[in-house]
Amino acid sequence: MTMKNNELETKSELQEKSLFDKAVGRRSFLQYAGAGAAGIALVAAGCSKDRGYDNPTMNGATLDFKTDIGVLNYAYALEQLEAAFYIKVASAPPAAFTAAQKAYFQDVQFHEIAHREFFKKALSTAAIGSLEVDFSSIDFTSASGVLAAAQSFEDLGVSAYNGAGVRITTTDYLVLAGKIVSVEARHAAWVRDQISNGSFADLNSLTALGANNSAGLDGALTPDKVLAIAGKYVKTKINVINL
């Protein structure tokens, strides 16, 4: 594993160098154009910078954005995170939750599990492993704490799918991402309304995620930015290459 990690970092460095040299080919350029300046940020959160670090475990997941497999694994990683969160909420909801809130959190839990399991099946042997999550920053006994976390996950999920769609080259996968993102947006709107009725599409509050209220646009973020935000909830090291 150590060798593999070193090899991946080397590949990252090469990619980084070639981008700075501006010696990019046509395909890379198109990715650059699509992703904007963020395309340069190749190493996302959670990726260790200390080169000599010897990682003795099998931990670590690599998202190689060169192909659709990387994009699907990225979605798989995010769905793992969401599913783990909702499983924890649904198994022991905050005491202050209403019956309706408990029922809908059950639904959302199964939606996210379905997404997670779908990607796992679709990716088959190309799937990354199970991520280890860290929800220590969330107070699962507090209704407001759980709702705030749910809102963060859903709004981020929407921005993630919106930002990653342009990378998908297989039509069927693009449609599938579209089928999932609108469900995440429905979740996001509902959770937001639980916190503050009428905030379902408060785009002004989503500018950090790439939303633009005056144009009526929801968030959209490149994977490196999404992973930087999601990083605090993930223990597993996530390597990003070919972004």
């Binding site: 198109l30 154009a33 699509g34 929407v158 799918y161 919106n162 930002g163 769609g165 342009v166 998908i168 080259t169 579209g178 993102v181 609108s182 469900v183 995440e184 947006a185 429905r186 979740h187 996001a188 709107a189 509902w190 309304d193 379902f200 599409a201 785009l203 790439g210 939303a211 633009n212 009526g216 646009l217 929801d218 968030g219 959209a220």
Partner: peptide, 20 residues
């Protein structure tokens, strides 16, 4: 694969929020 897609998706999810 077109940059237009991103904008279309950003509208799409706003419509989904409305629908919700």
């Amino acid at each position: 694969g077109n940059a237009v897609l991103t904008t279309a998706l950003q509208i799409h999810s706003v419509e989904a929020r409305h629908a919700s």
